[in-house]
Simulated scan of single mutants.
Amino acid sequence: MTFSLVARCVETGMFGVAISSSSPAVAARCSYARAGVGAVASQNVTDPTLGPMALDSMEAGKSAQQAISEIQQRGKFIEYRQVLAVDMMGRTAIHSGPNSLGIWTQANAENVASGGNMLANDDVPQAIVDTFLASSGHLGDRLLTAMRAGLAAGGEAGPVHSAGMKLVDKVSWPVADLRCDWTEDCPIEAVAMAWEVYKPQLEAYVQRALDPREAPSYGVPGDE
């Protein structure tokens, strides 16, 4: 009931996850990323413990493939799970259990991996990967461009209702964590609209956390 991608920006080292689903609040359950470590999407009859487990493995020095292998060994009901990972070197790996739902498939390359289930067709993840690799600019822009391509290639077999995008970069918290938890319209476009507003302020929000004395003004009524 989901399609997603995890990716790394070669130029900045930033990691990101973008995801969409017919289920509500998919990004709240399925998106995981840790600055300097990697990004993981855990989906298809989701087990939320698998994302942190994979990130812990990669933080301990294991590759994305080794982290996925550990999940395959330690995870419960792993035949129902689909997990994507990218590590600090840009290596990628995917586990898609044989009990993944509907049409399911995956695609990966250096710095990007995509997977989906209950898809309209098996071309969706490859379209996402190809579009990401052909794109440029800020990682957030590239993730959304790739997700739009996945939707244009067919997306889910039915309409999607939720989406999200998470970015991590240098600090211990996500520098962007944008979600649309439910809509009858396009949730990917809802996240894209939020990103258009948030992107110009991203660095300012980080600066406010690190040292508010050097932060720009808030630009709201009452701010001096």
Rank of each mutant, 00 (worst) to 15 (best):
Y198T: 01
I103K: 10
P125R: 00
N108Q: 14
P200H: 11
R74L: 15
Q201H: 12
A149W: 03
D130Y: 03
S63A: 09
R91W: 06
N111Y: 05
P159M: 08
D181I: 06
D141L: 11
D223N: 13
S63F: 12
V160N: 11
S135R: 04
P200W: 09
Q66C: 10
R142V: 14
G38R: 06
A33T: 08
Y218N: 10
M89P: 00
V197M: 05
A113R: 04
M14Y: 00
Q72L: 06
L139R: 01
L84T: 08
Q73T: 11
Y80L: 15
D123L: 13
V37E: 05
M58C: 12
K76H: 05
P125N: 03
L5F: 03
V6T: 07
S135E: 10
S63I: 12
A127K: 07
V175A: 02
W173L: 15
A7W: 01
A157V: 08
V17K: 05
A93V: 13
R81M: 06
G158A: 14
Q72C: 14
V86P: 00
K62G: 08
S114K: 00
Y218Q: 12
Y80G: 00
L139Q: 04
N44P: 00
P212N: 08
V191I: 07
D130M: 06
L55D: 12
A215Y: 01
A7T: 02
A146E: 14
S23I: 07
E214V: 11
D177I: 06
Q65E: 15
W104H: 14
P159G: 12
A157Y: 08
S22H: 07
D169Q: 09
A134K: 12
N44A: 15
R208Q: 11
T92D: 13
M88A: 15
S172A: 13
G137D: 04
L101H: 01
G222P: 00
Q82D: 07
N117A: 12
A134H: 08
S136P: 08
D177T: 04
P187V: 02
A107T: 02
A18I: 02
